[in-house]
Design a protein around this nucleic acid. Sequence first.
DNA 1: GTCTATAATTAGATAGAC
DNA 2: GTCTATCTAATTATAGAC
Lengths: 203, 203
Amino acid sequence: MSVVTRRDEQAARTRERIVEAAVDAFAERGFRGASTRDIASRAGANQGLITYHFRTKDELWRAAADRIFGMLRTSLIARLASSETEDPRERAREQIREYVRYAAAHPELFRMMIEEGKDGGERMQWLVDTHVRPMYDEFVRSADLGDGGFDSSLLPHFHYVLAGASSLIFAVAPECRRLTGLDPETEAAVETHAEVVARLLVP
Amino acid sequence: MSVVTRRDEQAARTRERIVEAAVDAFAERGFRGASTRDIASRAGANQGLITYHFRTKDELWRAAADRIFGMLRTSLIARLASSETEDPRERAREQIREYVRYAAAHPELFRMMIEEGKDGGERMQWLVDTHVRPMYDEFVRSADLGDGGFDSSLLPHFHYVLAGASSLIFAVAPECRRLTGLDPETEAAVETHAEVVARLLVP
DNA sequence: GTCTATAATTAGATAGAC
DNA sequence: GTCTATCTAATTATAGAC
């Protein structure tokens, strides 16, 4: 049947570069603000290639979203498996710390959630159904186990408290630097933020 | 000198309508995503009028930002003055609840902070210097007084934890509805969220 | 002051050479 | 596969009639 040629590999690499450039561009400027010409330029490729590999800007956006959320999922799963402590509260804290560390390393995710979540458009619906709901279900499950189960009607509130408290400082890192003088992207700041959030949510 | 004519009043009302439409449009779509034609259309006015009243899209954006942050400031000051409890911790909680209520009523503010704070552009710098820093200074002052003063290097973290935890659920209300079934814009949900945030931050 | 008409850019998508 | 050239539509800002 099909044979993987050198040309196929080169094309796959080009496609990858475009997706990575798209992740950055969409996170920085949003769907409308990012232009396919700019994305192609960042990837060192031609604008026509975007049409060739992805057909439309919308499909390119979906490929970028797949990449962002796929990375989060594998990262969280890896850490969950390697947890060593027995105390359920300390385990919950470590999970929160890991979530904060990911938010620091990948502010794109939070920016994309805000960008699309604020309106009820098709991209938001696709994002929720495809990527956010599986993660939210996991959050609900671990919250139920971890704390002996509190009023489940509070879970949506806790979810958005956790997400907002963990991510905002990294999503607006340039603002944080100018406003407070603190660079939230240093490792020390990330660990401090992780500890603050973990201790507030699991006292 | 100058006399306020009926025509002046009409012009002032037109200007106001344009500013209000701009607040909505910029919050929904960001600076790039919002078009002056759309803003004029929402205001029931002509696109040429934006140039007449504001010269550029950038100046219109500044007028919209002035309006958003001006409303927050007057709202918070009014509530601070009317506080009745003596217990400093309960006073701090009431302040947080009021912040959450404002975030619920005006998700535009949070959306604008994210939209501009994520890059280091001129609009972010103007926004921080003009509107955010005075509010942050007030936050630092009241945090020092309220809790007998903790490590001040943690203040930036607490600030962004408070802002993110309070605002995210309302900033992405359509997503919240689809993901969890909860409509965060109902009064009951707002009060629940206010209580959750206040109790987490001031146990 | 408010409007219409339009100039100058820039966008996403297409066609076709190589 | 990758590129250049181009089409159509939408953008901000301007010019000028009323």
